[in-house]
Structure formats: C-alpha cells, structure tokens
Write a protein that binds this DNA or RNA. Structure first.
Lengths: 192, 192
DNA sequence: GAAATTATTGAACGATCATTCCAGAATAGA
DNA sequence: TCTATTCTGGAATGATCGTTCAATAATTTC
C-alpha cells in the first residue's frame, strides 16, 4: 500500500546517542542531528517528535543497553568478586575502545541535575537497577568470605556505582586505560 | 576624572559561576547572565569580553578557589590520613550546604570533554595540583604506617580524585549527605 | 561648571534556533 | 495504472541567540 520506512529507527537513535553524548542536549542542533542520523528533517520530526522527545528516547535506549550489558557481565562469572571485576573491565574497555568516550547518562545528570523530571526518573531507575544487582553479588561474596564481613553491601554497592561514574568521567577527561584500571583496582581493594 | 565602576567584578563572577554550573555554557543565555549578575548588558561585554571569555574566567576562578580550599583542608590536619578525610568532609559539606550543588569543573569536562583546549588546560592543571597534594600526604601517611605499604601513592591519589568527582556528581544527581559520606568512607577504606 | 569616564538601556544586527508547511519524488500494494 | 504512504528538501515561521551601536544618564576629578 505504501512506501516503507527506509531508515532503521534504532540505527538512527544510535547516531543520536552519539552526538548527544558528545555535545549534550543544548549543544546539539537539529541540523547536526539530521546530518548524523542520515534522516531527513521532516522524517525525524515525524518519527521521533521534537528534539526533547528524541533526547529522552536516546537516553532511555542508551541507559537500558548500558545497564543490561553491565549486569550481564556482573552475573556471568561464577565467583561474585570476579563478576564485579568484570563489571569494571567491560566499562573500561568500552570507554577506551570508542573514539570519543562519553556517557549520555552522566552527561544528562551533569547538564540537567534534577530539573527535568523525566531525566531524573531515568537516572534513578537505572541507578536502582545497577545498585541492586551489585548488592546481590556483594551479599553473595560476603557469604562466601570473598570480601570483608564488616562491609555494608548497600553502601558498597553505592560506592561501586559512584566509581563506575568516576571512571566514565575520567575517560571523558582524557585518562588512559591504565589510569582507569588503577581506579577500578583501588575501588575493588576497598572490599577486602 | 571618571565615574568609578559600581559593581564588583568578583561578585559578578561568582554569580556567573552559579548559573554556569547550574545550566552549563550552552544552557546559559546572555540575558540570564546579566539578570543573575546584576550587570547591564553592555557593562558585561565591556568588562568580561564575550560569553566564552566570561565562562573561562568563571571556570578559572571557581577551580582555583576550589582547589585552594581543598588543599588547605588536606594540609591542615597534623596526621596525613586525617587531612585526607578532612578533604572529603569539606567537599561533602560544601555540596550539601549549597542549595544547588553543582561543580563548574565537572560541568565543563562533561560538556566539552577535550574539545576546548582552554578547558582541557584548566582541568588538567587543577587535577595535577590536587593529585600531587594528595600524593604528598599519601607518601607521608605511608611512611608513618597509617596506610598500607603495598599502595602506590600515585595510583591512590588518582583514585581519590576520581572519588571526589564521583561525590560531586552523586550530589548533583540528588544523593544526600549520608550517601556521600559512605562513598568517602569506602574510598578511605581502600587505603588500609 | 567642564571634562571624562562609566552605567544603563532601547534598538538593531545577522545568525541560528527548533519547528512546520508544502510540494514533488519515490515506492509499495491493489 | 491508481492510490496510499513515506521520503526529501526548499521555504518560511517566529523566537531567541550573542553581540554591537548609539544615545542618555550618572558620577567622578579638575
């Protein structure tokens, strides 16, 4: 009946994620979006709504995928402590392999703080998921004596998430793989 | 001979620091600047040059003061480890006491990454200063047996700076004093 | 009071912003 | 071929952007 959509919305969204993380919401123009996404101006508005809706779509997609990848790595290893270490490794590898390492989640928090309810909600949801998954493995590790007994798993999980964010920001600032790895190593050290 | 300047450039700069940290460079309009700084449009341009120069001035001022305050706290305590702990306390207290906790330094890195040489330079200089000051006290602490002997002071200093940044970002995301303190406590724990 | 400097502000600049309207080209099923 | 849908891009929208010009008011020193 009709001409089918020619571009893949998911691929286009990935491109949107890329520019938004590099230049933020305010720093990304609609023209830059259409250019990077390879989508006509009108198609963009027809498909994704306005710029803010597109931003939220990109943010949700990025955060979901990011959290999913990290939780997968976290749960893959048989030993809990190995899973936590892998969690960091995946993150570091990702930050170093991509040309321009920038996290859209961190960028959103930095740019908007808590002024945009939608952003706050997305950030808190992913933070909750990640923290809980970490806590699970920390409890497990503690039960098996892999980490110190006087640690509060909840606190430790929050600490680890904070260090994940710190690593992302250090990468954005230009730190090399070695620096990032030493941060992760020190963070893990505090669990002993 | 002439009418003297009526507003204090430093006070005005502090106001600029406040809005720039809340909304970033791109998110802050010239109108918002004049309103918050209490300075006429033309006076602003006459005194500070254009928006970008004003941003750099604000960034330098913020970073210098911030680093100075923190190094002061770091060196005040007789015992090195206490100094490091105080370093974190000062930061946390500052982040919690201000209504809108936002760090212009972190914001600059988030917004621009390494695209703007001036920003990169400012960030790296302050990072160097802070890291070195921390390393000094870590070496001292190690010599006196306050921290573990198998720690590399350079790595540990980088780790601590990363956690300072992490705390600032957690505060921006809405974390309370207790959460921030537990992050700091865990970071210090890794030195044992 | 005169001269000099600064503050303030309205007006305007061209540029760019996000967004919409619209018309034509392309591509599918009927 | 006809029709329906989508893609594409030029044109235009009104708004806002950063910035400058220019004129007036204010305040100082001489």
């Amino acid at each position: 009946m009709a001409r089918p959509k020619i571009f893949d919305p998911d691929t286009a969204l990935d491109a949107a994620i890329s520019i938004f993380s590099q230049h933020g919401f305010e720093g990304t123009s609609a023209a830059a979006l259409t250019a990077a996404m390879g989508v006509g101006r009108q198609s963009l508005y027809d498909t994704f709504g306005d710029k803010w809706q597109l931003y939220l779509l990109a943010l949700r997609r990025y955060v979901n995928r990011s959290v999913a990848t990290q939780i997968l790595a976290l749960r893959a290893a048989p030993k809990a402590l190995d899973g936590i270490a892998a969690h960091f490794s995946v993150l570091i590898e990702d930050a170093c392999s991509s040309i321009r390492p920038a996290c859209l989640g961190v960028g959103a928090i930095c740019e908007f703080g808590r002024e945009k309810p939608e952003v706050t909600e997305i950030a808190e949801a992913s933070n909750r998921l990640l923290t809980y998954a970490l806590k699970e493995r920390l409890v497990e590790a503690q039960a098996k004596g892999e980490i110190a007994g006087d640690i509060d798993p909840q606190d430790a999980a929050g600490f680890l998430v904070a260090n994940l964010v710190a690593i992302k920001l250090a990468a954005r600032a230009g730190a090399g793989r070695q620096t990032l790895q030493s941060i992760a190593a020190m963070a893990l050290r505090s669990l002993r």
